[in-house]
Amino acid sequence: MHANVKWVEGDTFIGKSESGHNVVFDTSNDGAAPSPMEMVLMSIGCCSSVDVVSILKKARQDVIAAKVELSSERADSAPRVFKKINLHFVITGNAVSEKHVERAVKLSAEKYCSVALMLEKSVEITHSFEVLAAQ
């Protein structure tokens, strides 16, 4: 895998992935785009969500919506690395089994989410979930 990041101006950078997709980063406090650390946080959420949704679909769960709410704690001084990350999944559907959601979250955390598995070596990562009935 390859990528590059180019400085645009000020605190703005554009990353380009090997697949040709561009992502804007902004490191200022009032930036117009996510910071690199925000991207890492969203990346763990996306990676794990892909797993959870896929596992639930394979289990024939009638999932209508899936969201992960991410919270984190960072070190107070530089380098301001993540110390803790919590992924709280909110799964909405028709008769979705909590047991299936629990299993999907666990499989993602322990086996499939490469971002989480990479980060867990230095970050305390926790998971929680809730299942909501579709309206």
Rank of each mutant, 00 (worst) to 15 (best):
F13M: 08
F13T: 14
I14L: 14
G15D: 05
G15L: 14
S17P: 01
E18M: 07
E18I: 06
H21K: 09
V24E: 06
F25T: 10
T27D: 00
P34Y: 02
S35P: 15
P36M: 07
M37C: 04
M37T: 07
E38L: 07
M39D: 03
M42Q: 06
M42I: 12
S43E: 02
C46P: 13
C47H: 02
V50R: 03
V50Q: 04
V52N: 05
V52G: 03
I55T: 04
L56I: 07
L56E: 10
K57M: 07
R60V: 11
Q61L: 01
Q61R: 06
D62G: 15
D62Q: 15
V63E: 04
I64G: 13
K67W: 02
K67F: 10
K67C: 06
V68S: 06
S71K: 00
S72W: 09
A75L: 10
A75G: 08
D76I: 12
A78F: 06
A78W: 02
R80L: 02
R80H: 10
F82N: 08
I85C: 01
N86W: 06
F89N: 00
F89Y: 03
V90R: 00
N94F: 15
N94V: 13
N94A: 08
V96E: 00
E98Q: 10
E98F: 06
V101P: 14
A104M: 05
A104S: 09
S108D: 05
